[in-house]
Computed example of a mutant assay.
Amino acid sequence: MDVATHHTLEADSIWLAYQEQKILQNIYIKLETGHITGLLGRNGTGKSCLMRMIFGTLRGESQSVRVNGDYISHPYLQAGLISYLPQHNFLPKQLRVKEVCQLYHVDFEAVCEHFEALQQYRNTRIGDLSTGNVRLIGTLLVVLLPVSFTLLDEPFAALSPLAVEQMRKVILGQKPHKGILISDHSYEDVVAMADETYLLVPVGRSIRLKNVHSELAEFGYI
């Protein structure tokens, strides 16, 4: 997909339940290239599940994801369309950092342009890195992938305050080329970056916030 062209992704008709307990319903969310969209909600409201359903690796009772108005059943199978950062470590522990970069088609030197300290780990195996560095590298690879949409689930987790600030700059630098959905417990960072923000509330409804801070207080999020 041409990342230089404006694209939209809409997700609705999202219905997910476990053992008759409703997790997600009445969901609508829209992403646009050139926009950062925030996704907030307390633990258990289904933020990670929603991202996985948009990505296409989790199937619910129903779901609809449309790109430029066209239904896409499994977005992750479409080359150049979408990338996703899960909360868990997804990098192969046996591979070296430079090999993982090659696997994701991201230049190692481009990674180091943003975080120079990673240069020393070129030949280090993922399994020998600290938890923070594994998360940092994984997040950078997902953010820098040349796709139209990027889903980021807790991109600031396990990062130092200085690393968080730099990662914010990296994400903002990708904004002109992508539609980015970001969720993080550091909600202030999310709100500061987002052009629009959605809140998930029990049971699984999505609300697009107009007056973000006042509505977050109104719904008991802060």
Rank of each mutant, 00 (worst) to 15 (best):
G80F: 07
G127D: 14
A192P: 07
I72A: 06
Y71S: 07
K210S: 04
A194W: 00
N211V: 02
A192D: 12
V190E: 09
C49R: 00
E154T: 00
E215R: 12
R168P: 01
R66C: 06
E116L: 05
Q19G: 11
D184R: 07
T57H: 12
F219V: 00
L216T: 02
L9M: 12
A117T: 09
V134P: 05
G60V: 11
A117V: 10
D128F: 11
A194H: 01
V111F: 08
S206G: 00
L159E: 09
I54N: 05
K98D: 08
I23Q: 02
I171D: 00
V142I: 15
E61Y: 11
M167T: 09
S206M: 01
F55V: 05
F90D: 13
Y84R: 06
Q21N: 09
G220C: 06
V97R: 04
L162N: 15
V97L: 11
A4W: 00
N211G: 00
S73N: 06
A11I: 04
L31M: 13
L136C: 10
K98I: 14
S62A: 13
E154G: 01
L209N: 05
L209E: 04
K169F: 02
Q63K: 09
S186R: 13
S206E: 01
G44V: 07
L91K: 09
I23H: 03
P86R: 03
I207V: 13
V164W: 04
M53A: 05
V106D: 05
V201Q: 12
I180E: 02
I23N: 04
V147E: 02
K178L: 07
Y28E: 09
I29E: 07
S83C: 11
P202F: 06
L144D: 04
L162W: 13
Q166M: 08
Y198L: 00
L9H: 01
N89H: 13
L199S: 08
I180W: 03
Q166F: 01
N89P: 00
I29H: 03
G56D: 10
P176E: 15
H35D: 14
T131G: 15
S13V: 05
A163F: 05
L39E: 08
Q87K: 11
N89E: 14
V100H: 06
S214W: 08
V164Q: 15
I222Y: 13
Q87D: 15
G38D: 15
E215Y: 07
S148I: 01
A157V: 14
D2M: 03
P92Q: 05
I207L: 14
K178T: 13
L216Q: 05
V65E: 07
L181D: 02
A110R: 12
R52P: 02
G46F: 06
Y221T: 09
D2W: 04
A163V: 04
K98P: 01
N26C: 00
V190C: 12
H35S: 14
F115V: 09
G38A: 14
I207M: 02
Q102K: 13
V142L: 06
L103P: 01
P202Y: 08
E165C: 03
N89D: 15
Y121D: 12
R59Q: 15
P176G: 15
C49F: 00
Y71I: 12
Q21S: 07
I29A: 01
T139M: 02
L40C: 05
I36S: 11
G220Y: 10
G80C: 07
N211P: 01
K98A: 11
D189G: 05
L144A: 04
